[in-house]
Design a protein around this nucleic acid. Structure first.
Length: 251
DNA sequence: CGCCAGGCAACAC
DNA sequence: GTGTTGCATGGC
């Protein structure tokens, strides 16, 4: 199997995932109730770019639902802004992002991230995009978070390697999951088209499949009838209910 | 109750 | 460079 074979298979099964969610715009601008924009692209405005970057930090080591809760608390308290976060006492910030776990660490990371954004050069409605090494120099931004920010916030393709990626590429035999981050990333990037849309969609599909089926304890049970079974569709989670094809014979 | 969830820095060797 | 540990909440 080739890298793109898995991509096309996942796309058939789950359909376009809609880049990275912007909970602040859920239900608006063509976004769904969680803030995803299927078939969309990166935000062109500074607020959207910053919100995705904050989300990438908040979701470190934690489920998106918990990160989303913290993100909404920042939003409700008018703290989804680099200036406001940079000037906020760490204890206040920590109490706001409490649902995301590791809240003291993440408060500091958000302050560092905000300082970095305050130094970015505005460029039209957005920013001049930072380099990958610039992002990696920020305390709290490691390789995965940097690649999420580059790909999903700025639309600059840099393939995201996370635990789901390692697991799914490992189980399908596409890669050795124990390889170091940079080796895996360059291997994937050599095998797929150099397109922001493909990078963003591929990783989003990997996350979707990782959450729904290819978990630590995988659910490899195929259900060929899912697409035409009303009981199955009505009783399953929203992600699965949106599936338009059966999920058999994958991984 | 135990396990897991879209990591990272700091440190040991 | 590889391996381990602390950080901490919420869902199942």
């Amino acid at each position: 199997m080739h890298w793109m074979d898995l991509y096309h298979r996942l796309l058939e099964i789950y359909g376009p995932r809609g880049w990275w969610p912007l909970p602040s715009r859920a239900g608006r601008d063509g976004r769904d109730e969680r803030g995803y924009l299927p078939g969309g692209g990166p935000p062109s405005d500074r607020a959207g770019i910053f919100e995705i970057s904050v989300g990438a930090v908040l979701t470190q080591g934690i489920s998106w639902t918990n990160a989303e809760r913290a993100l909404l608390r920042l939003l409700e308290n008018d703290f989804l802004d680099p200036r406001r976060i940079a000037d906020c006492p760490p204890e206040t910030l920590a109490s706001l992002v409490r649902p995301a776990g590791y809240y003291n660490v993440k408060a500091r990371k958000l302050i560092e991230l905000s300082g970095f954004f305050l130094g970015l050069r505005p460029d039209g409605p957005g920013f001049r995009a930072p380099g990958r090494t610039d992002l990696l120099r920020v305390w709290g931004i490691g390789p995965e978070t940097a690649d999420c920010i580059l790909t999903y916030a700025f639309g600059i393709p840099s393939f995201v390697i996370d635990e789901y990626t390692r697991r799914i590429f490992g189980r399908t035999g596409l890669a050795d999951p124990k390889e170091p981050y940079e080796k895996l990333r360059t291997a994937v990037e050599r095998g797929i088209p150099d397109s922001p849309a493909v990078y963003a969609e591929y990783h989003a599909l990997i996350v979707e499949h990782g959450k729904l089926r290819c978990r630590t304890r995988p659910d490899c049970r195929p259900c060929p009838l899912l697409s035409c079974c009303e009981y199955g569709l009505s009783s399953l989670s929203y992600e699965t209910a949106r599936t338009k094809h059966d999920t058999s014979s994958l991984v």
